[in-house]
Simulated assay, not measured.
Amino acid sequence: MIKKVQRGLSQSTLLTREGIITGWRASLHVLAERHRGGLRERKGSAWLVLEGELTEPVSGVSGFSIHMFPVTEPFVGQAQIPSVGSFIRVKPVMDGVVELSDREFDFVVTLVASGRIASCSVAFQPPRYGRALIASIGFSSDPPTLDDEA
């Protein structure tokens, strides 16, 4: 349920949505650089994108695309609410970006590679100007729980 305040929704109010995963994409980019002083460095970045449909639309949009990447020490957002990522665009689909620890990223990749990923659950701020902070996100091999089944 959403708590309404006098001038609209509070920035601390969270929406929760379940989503059905319908597709995914992955990419890896590796680069070698030479810096001043002859120091050589190798950098790599991996991305996993999960796509699907929310079981309940947000502002008339039900499609989503969550872009995830691993980092050694994931950052906790310090804006209005503690966050693990954000929706950076709401239309034509909910486009989100999330940092995961190496272990968390490996777990999601294992679910995807084994063909067992089925759903996600996400809690986020109501979108404002096409953006919203993500407070939590989860992925599962179980199908989403629909409210009318409870």
Rank of each mutant, 00 (worst) to 15 (best):
M1A: 12
M1Q: 06
I2V: 15
K3C: 08
K3F: 06
Q6S: 10
Q6I: 14
Q6N: 12
G8E: 05
G8V: 14
L9V: 14
S10A: 15
T13M: 10
L14S: 03
L15I: 15
T16W: 03
R17P: 03
G19T: 09
G19P: 03
I21L: 01
I21D: 00
T22K: 07
G23N: 01
W24G: 05
A26Y: 09
L28K: 11
H29S: 13
L31H: 09
E33D: 09
R34N: 11
R34K: 13
R34H: 05
R36A: 15
R36Q: 12
R36E: 14
G37R: 01
R42Q: 13
K43S: 12
K43G: 04
G44I: 09
S45T: 09
S45F: 05
A46D: 06
A46W: 04
W47Q: 13
W47Y: 11
L48E: 02
L48F: 06
L48Y: 06
V49S: 07
V49P: 01
L50W: 03
E51Y: 06
G52C: 01
L54I: 10
T55A: 07
V58P: 05
G60Q: 09
G60I: 05
V61E: 02
G63V: 08
F64D: 00
S65H: 00
S65D: 01
S65M: 08
I66P: 01
H67E: 07
H67A: 12
H67C: 07
P70H: 03
P70E: 00
V71P: 05
V71R: 03
T72C: 05
F75E: 08
G77I: 11
G77E: 02
Q78D: 11
A79Y: 06
I81L: 08
P82N: 02
P82W: 07
P82E: 08
I88E: 08
I88A: 03
V90F: 05
V90N: 00
V90I: 13
K91V: 13
P92W: 04
V93D: 04
V93T: 11
M94Y: 05
M94S: 02
M94H: 06
D95E: 14
D95L: 15
V97I: 14
V98H: 00
V98G: 00
E99M: 14
L100K: 00
L100R: 06
S101W: 03
D102H: 09
R103T: 15
E104N: 12
F105K: 02
F107V: 12
F107A: 15
F107I: 11
V112T: 15
S114W: 04
G115I: 12
G115P: 09
R116K: 15
R116V: 10
I117Y: 04
S119Q: 01
C120P: 01
V122C: 06
F124N: 10
P127G: 09
P127S: 06
R131A: 12
A132Y: 03
L133F: 03
I134L: 03
I134R: 01
I137S: 01
G138Y: 03
F139M: 04
D142R: 15
D142S: 15
T145W: 07
T145C: 07
L146M: 12
L146R: 13
D147V: 12
D148P: 15
D148V: 15
